[in-house]
Design a protein around this nucleic acid. Sequence first.
DNA 1: TCAAAAGTGTTCTTGATACACCCATGC
DNA 2: GCATGGGTGTATCAAGAACACTTTTGA
Lengths: 233, 233
Amino acid sequence: MSYSYNHPRPALAVDCVIFGFDHREEAPELHTLCIKRNIEPFKGKWALPGGFMRMNETLDEAAARELKEETGVEKVYIEQLYTFSAPDRDPRERVVAVAYFALVNLEKHSLSAGTDADAAQWFSVSKLPPLAFDHKTIVKTALERLRGKVRYQPVGFELLPDEFTLSELQALYETILERTFDKRNFRKKIDNYGLLVETGGMRRGKPNRAAKLYRFDSKRYKALEKHGFIFEL
Amino acid sequence: MSYSYNHPRPALAVDCVIFGFDHREEAPELHTLCIKRNIEPFKGKWALPGGFMRMNETLDEAAARELKEETGVEKVYIEQLYTFSAPDRDPRERVVAVAYFALVNLEKHSLSAGTDADAAQWFSVSKLPPLAFDHKTIVKTALERLRGKVRYQPVGFELLPDEFTLSELQALYETILERTFDKRNFRKKIDNYGLLVETGGMRRGKPNRAAKLYRFDSKRYKALEKHGFIFEL
DNA sequence: TCAAAAGTGTTCTTGATACACCCATGC
DNA sequence: GCATGGGTGTATCAAGAACACTTTTGA
């Protein structure tokens, strides 16, 4: 290969912050999927899944590929977050990392495909273990972005099962935004948008009244969005 | 230099979208500063200022450095935008570009330092010339980001002189958001935030009533921000 | 004295907030 | 039958929208 430009080249990595939400806990919380490194540097430490971009793929493709290879997660919401470039972020040489964040339904991805339990694990974001490289900073940045984004775009639904109850949705927003909502007002607001449809199913199994299940009407949202509609919570 | 990793390495460039606002036109508009390329590829075409990251600097530093070197612009608001990685975005070889956007006061930077008039030029964003590489996409992405950002963060002030009139501020928001505001309601809202202070000066010179000048109280904003205050327009 | 933009209040409508009780279910 | 969360309505308050005239200035 001959280079037309003659410049020093950093290695270029992608790293993924995968957010999952556990709505079944008493104290629901956001979780992040980490993998245990089995090579140096930081061998044995927890880190974000990631790897190096190939020369024939885009960063988006690299992020999706690494996500699948390292955690089995695929076909989920994923978005470029930020590019981290501190010269010493990798102890061995210059590596620039393009970070992504993904939103997944934790139930669907509760650890199975291609990873043994010791190699990948969900951590609640408030109890992260020490992470390799600058991955703690990356997670923090991702959290801030998620908090900002969730307020004016309906991305929260990506973290829930296809069918969910209004209480689950409310718990999700309360967790991410670190505040509480009045139940009646929350339901009223969601209702007004007309973006949820009852599926007919009910969430049973707990010793209390069964809850109606809803799904997010993304077709309707896309239609509204084109006419300048802005989801805001 | 010995490499610990053995991976193909793309060249890594930074490109800057510099936004300026001309409030003196009858039809005020956002402008972008472009430079004429004097090397291949795309020699003679207009392009965003930019260049390659060095191995001992961060991307932020590279962006600020290129901005200054190529346009003389320095000490302005600048923020990382997005990283572009289409494999064929540079016709010669793989170059990944980390895009930044800067907000400047157009009057202060109306082309002088270190650039001849043929080498750098402001274009209104609705009348951009054909741009090199994928720079058109980059400008489009920057515009979308600016539009989103301006609604909930007081970044618009970066585009105005230190002292500005309320009409200028209103024209700025109307231009960026492509809508109109009622003059009285706009002033009321801005007033309620208490983030503008009268400087005592007046904008004179036109055959109409002189307008009071204001400046943005960024100290007060930072204080409010810490208490969870959110600017929103 | 004229044209052009600055400046200013009130009414109405809409959305946000606050608040408390009955209902269905599994154990 | 009891503990647990599901589900609902109304009154008040604050913010947003609609709307028109007088003032100051330079030419």
